[in-house]
Write a protein that binds this DNA or RNA. Structure first.
Lengths: 226, 226, 226, 226
DNA sequence: TATGAATGAGCATTCATTCAT
DNA sequence: GATGAATGAATGCTCATTCAT
C-alpha cells in the first residue's frame, strides 16, 4: 500500500531541512516528514517519539503523516530502511583502485568506523530496532539486500590478500564484517555509559585516534598471522 | 531519601521471581518491584515500560512503587545500578590462581563475553540508558566505582604478561576493556538486526563458537605481537 | 498560543447551557467548555474541580479541553477574565442621564450590589483566586483594564457632587469603590458562615432590604457630611 | 466520638510551633497536628491540603491524624472552630471602662479590623468554609455560641449611645456587626485581586490608615446622624 | 500510643489515530 | 492534497484512608 520512493533510486543520506514550505508540494511534504521523523526517532526512540512533534517539525499536520506512511510504526520502518541504505551507499562509494590488500582492508575499516562516528543517529535507530528485536525490519527485504554489496567487497579484498600471501585463509567475510562493525559501533553507541562508567570519551580527539590505531593494528595482526 | 540496599552489600544478580507473596513483607515487596521493573525495563525501555505492569508482576500496587522508589525514573536508575553491580560482582568472582598471563586474559575475555550472552537484559538496559545519553546514571556514583576492580584486574594481567615477556607493553587497560566489551557486546546487543541484515545468529551454537575463537585469536595476536 | 475570543468583543455574562451539541462546532465546543468550567470552578474551586466533569457537562471529551485551553489552570484563568469582563460590562451599561449626584451614586451602588447578589458565582471565583493569592490573574492584563471605566465613572459622579456642593471633597475613587464593593461583597460571599454564626440570611428578602437601606444611608451620610 | 479539648477551656490563638517533639506525648501530638493542619488548610484549603504534609509538619505520621480527629474533614471542622473561638476570645478581652459610646464603638471597630489584618489565616479558613457553603460548621454549636458575647457588647454600646443622645435609635446590632466585619474583611480577604485589579495594597501602610480613617468616619457619620 | 506498610480509586494530562470538510 | 476538530483509551502519579504490629 505504501511504497518508499527513497529506496527505488539511489538513496541519499538524510540531510538537514533547508527548504521552506510551499503549498501543495506532495514530495516535499513527504520528505520533510521523513526527515523530521528521523530526528524524532533518533532523539527518543519509537515509543518516545511524538507524532505531533514530527508533524510540527515537518511543517505539516499529523493527518499527512498517516496519509503518506499509514502509521507511526510504518514510518519508523521507512526511516530505518532509508538509514541502512544511506550506510550502504556510503560504503559502496569508496574505490580501492591501486590499493594493496592491507591498504584496502584498512581503508574499508576506517570508512565504516568513520561513518559510524559521523552518523550516530543511524546507530541510535539501530539500537532502537534491536530493543524491539528487529520487529519493524523483519518484513523488510530492502535491508538484507543493501548489505550484500559490502560483503562482496570484503570477500574480494580477503581473496586478493590470500592470493598475495599476506592474509590468512578461511576467514569468513560475515564474521569479519561483524567484528569490524562491533569495534566501531560500540564506542559510538555506548559512548555515554562508557563516559559514565570509565570517565573517558572514546569518540573524540586523542582517545579516538588511539582507539582506531589499536583496532586497526589488532585486526591486521590477526589477518596477517598466517 | 531513597536508598539502594542492594548495593550496600554484595549484590546478587536479579533472578526470576520464585517467591509467593506474603503480607507485610517490606523487603520482599521492594525486591519483587525491582525484579519486575528489571523485566519491564528490559522488555520495553524506560518510556515503553508501564508502571501498572510492574506493579502487577510484583504482586503489589502502583502506589508501593512510588513508596519505595519515588518515581519511575528513580526506579530505572536503581535497576541500572543493580545490573552494573551484578556484572561487576560476577567478574570479580573469578580466580586466576596458577594461570599464565595468556590463560588469564583468555579466561577474563570469555568470562565477560559469557556474561553478556547470558544476561542480554543487562545489555538492553545499557542500550536504553545510552539512548537517554546516560541521563539516569550520570548522578550515580555507584556505577563508576563498580568498574574499578575489573580494570585493576586487567592491569595486573597485562603487567604480568609484560613482565613474562609475552605481552606487548604500553597497552591501556581502559581501551583494552572497551575493546573486549565491544566484541562481546555487539553480537548480543545487535543480534536481531544482524540476523535481519545477514541472516545469521552469532550468539548461538556454531556461529558463537567461531566468533569466540576468532575474537580470542585476534586479541591474543595483538597482545603477543611484541 | 491560546487566545480568549470572549474578551475581544463585548463579553457577555456566561449563562446556562441551552444549546444541543452539533458535530464540528469549534466555537460551540469552546463555549460549552467555558460555561461548564465556570460552573465547576464555581462549585468546587480550582483544585476541587474535575476536568472529566467539565468535559462531561460540555458534552465533549477531556482532550478538547486541552486542545482549546492548554491546561486546567489556563482554563481557570480564562474563566476568571470572562467573569471580570462580565461585571465590567454590566456596570458600564448603566446610564446616569438626568440624575442628581446623590441619585447617580445611589444607583451605582445598588447596581454593584445587585450584580454581586445576582452573580454569586463571580464572587466564588474571586474568592478562589484570592485563596491562590491571585496567581492566575497576575499575568492577566485584561482584568486591570476592565476596572478602569468604572473607576472613571465614580470619579465623575464625585466631581459633579463636589461641584454641586453636596459631596465632600478629597474622596479617593479607588477607596470609595472598594468600600462599596466590601459592603455588597461580604454579605453574599460570606452568607453561609454568617447564617451559621448569626442565624440570619442577609441576602434574601427583608434582611436584604434593610441591609441595602442602611448601607446606602451610611454611604450618603459620609459623602454629604461636608 | 472525637472531642475538642481546645474549646472546653478558654481557647488560645494558634501560635507557632515552638516545642520539640518528645516520644509518647499525646497532648503534644494532638496540638501539633492541629497547628500543622491550620497552616495547611490556610495555605491550600480543604481539598488542596495534603494529609501527609500535615503529618510531616506535625512531626508525626498520617495514622495519628485519623487516630485523633477521625478524618480530614473533621480535622478541618476542628480547625475552624478553634479559629472562630480565637477571634471571639480576642474581642472579649477588650475593656471599655471609662469610654464614651463613640470611643467604645471606635475601639471595637478598630479591634475587629486589627484582628482581621493580623490574622489573615482566619479569613482564608472562613473563605474556604464559605466556598463549601459552611458544610463543616453547620453541625457546630460552638461557632454560634462564640458570637453571642460580642453581639451583646455591641448592643450595650448602642444602647448607651442612644441613651446619651449621640447615636440614632433602632440600629440592629447584627446588621451593624456585619457591616463592620464587611469593611475590615474585604480589604484583607480580597487584597490580592484588589492589588491585581486596582494596583493598590489596601492592607499596608498609608492606604491602610486612610481606609481605617474613612471607614471609621463613615460609620460614625451614620450612627450620629439622628 | 505510635508507626511503617499497604491499598484502590481517582487525578490531570497525553497518546496515536480518525472524522468531516 | 491538505487541515482543524474530535476521540477514547491509556499514562504516570497522588489521594485519603486502613492494616498489622
Amino acid at each position: 500500500m505504501w511504497t518508499n520512493p527513497e529506496l527505488s533510486a539511489h538513496s541519499l543520506i538524510i540531510g538537514y531541512m533547508t527548504d521552506l514550505k510551499t503549498k501543495r508540494d506532495p514530495l516535499g511534504t513527504r520528505r520533510r516528514i521523513l526527515e523530521a521523523a528521523t530526528e524524532e526517532f533518533t532523539r527518543a526512540g519509537l515509543s518516545g517519539a511524538r507524532v505531533d512533534q514530527i508533524a510540527k517539525k515537518a511543517l505539516t499536520n499529523e493527518r499527512m503523516l498517516y496519509y503518506y506512511f499509514g502509521s507511526k510504526e510504518q514510518l519508523f520502518t521507512t526511516v530505518l530502511e532509508v538509514a541502512f541504505a544511506a550506510f550502504s551507499d556510503a560504503e559502496l562509494a569508496i574505490s580501492f583502485d591501486g590499493d594493496t590488500p592491507v591498504e584496502a582492508m584498512t581503508r574499508l575499516m576506517h570508512s565504516i568506523w568513520d561513518f559510524y562516528r559521523e552518523h550516530p543517529e543511524l546507530l541510535r535507530l539501530v539500537n532502537n530496532e534491536n530493543l524491539h528485536e528487529a520487529r519493524y525490519l523483519k518484513k523488510s527485504m530492502a535491508v538484507r539486500a543493501s548489505m550484500q554489496p559490502i560483503l562482496l567487497r570484503l570477500k574480494e579484498i580477503l581473496a586478493q590478500g590470500e592470493l598475495a600471501g599476506v592474509f590468512r585463509s578461511q576467514v569468513e567475510p560475515e564474521l569479519l564484517f561483524i567484528t569490524i562493525s562491533a569495534l566501531g559501533y560500540y564506542v559510538v553507541s555506548n559512548r555515554y555509559t562508557i563516559e559514565t562508567s570509565m570517565g573517558l570519551d572514546f569518540t573524540l580527539g586523542e582517545e579516538c585516534d588511539a582507539t582506531v590505531r589499536m583496532h586497526t593494528e589488532m585486526m591486521l595482526a590477526y589477518l596477517t598471522r598466517l
